[in-house]
Amino acid sequence: MKDKIAENILLLIAFSAILSLLLITFFIFQQGIPLIFKTGLHNFFSISWSPTKGGFGILSMIIGSLMVTAGALVVGIPFGLACAVFLAEFSSPTIQKTLKPIIELLAGIPSVVYGFIGIVILVPFIRETFGGPGFSVLAASIILGIMILPTIVSISYDSLLAVPNTYREGSYALGATKWQTVRMLLLHAARSGIVAGIILGMGRAIGETMAVIMIAGNALKIPGSLLDSVRTLTSTIALELGYAAGDHRAALFACGSILFIIIIILNIVAIRVTGRK
């Protein structure tokens, strides 16, 4: 009897979590989608964003989001994979036990701190070394690349550890070196986990807001180079929601809907990739 009550209470709590997700989804789409149709798809996916004068084209922000996300992956994948391979295959248990929690700690640093470090160190460095304003695609990519490291490292590490030892033995028994084994066998065997880690990292990068606002410069145009300033979907929402009203406010929800759709697609792909074996 007591079990039954506990079960029902837990069910209720679990259901309310799902319910809140459904409500958020419904609310965002309900607020945003009508504007997309009102503006027309063609205008909505154009580059003219002048929300106070009725221009709701979000193309430059979509491109901005995609650019910093791609940049984050260019930075995050090589470092993250190298780190995971080193931890899983080349380091002693003591080093693993020390380094893994430290890397995971990176995920616990508030994003405003990343942004702050970006402003204080990275932006001036880029300005003085490569020119331009410093607030740029490059700066955002590097900071986001570091921010997605823990996701990529820990998921890739776990999936490398999950590769059965019999594969390693089989490979060594053919005369393969450790590095050959990693490159020719283990990365293949752990591929689904690694891809899932990368996709989840991508989701983090595209959704990140605070750090990006602080270092990307937020200029409203399609960047011509890595040193140009850039504005993302998330920055636009955060920067403008405070004073937006009417259609402008709806347009920001429309941006949110687009982000939401992109992130849902990424998550579905990640789940598909890990499920398939």
Partner: peptide, 10 residues
């Protein structure tokens, strides 16, 4: 070497 359980690679 051939192992106890077949360890064909994935």
């Amino acid at each position: 070497m051939v192992f106890q359980r077949p360890n064909a690679f994935p």
